[in-house]
Amino acid sequence: MTSADHQATHDVVKHSERHEGPQKHIIVFVLSIVLTAIAFAAVAAGGVNAAFTVLLLLVMAVIQVLVQMGYWMHLKDRGHMMPIIFMLGGFFVAGTAIVTALYWVWW
């Protein structure tokens, strides 16, 4: 193997490391479709315990949001500590508003 070849191989390896393929984003897309389909099907089927359906819907939504924010918005990549703190702060205030409206207004 010549030095030039070695350099070429090295470049190829570096290249593939740097450019992530579309595969994992397509997996996130398919997963999102499946989670959405489960939520729609659970409601369309009816008959099931309403409290269980509500819980199932919320779990499906939260999983989908976490996966999309992690992979599509790159929150799971390194160097995203501050963005995660910003978003957690936002969700905390949003959650407080929702809990307040639900369990205080109609108490």
Binding site: G90, F91, V93, A97, A101
Partner: peptide, 21 residues
């Protein structure tokens, strides 16, 4: 922009709170 999106989460959170109530 992440700080802005944190603020957007609060904005939509209050609208969701109003809707749920």
């Amino acid at each position: 922009f992440w700080l802005f999106l944190g603020g957007e989460a609060v904005l939509f959170g209050t609208l969701f709170a109003t809707f749920l109530a």
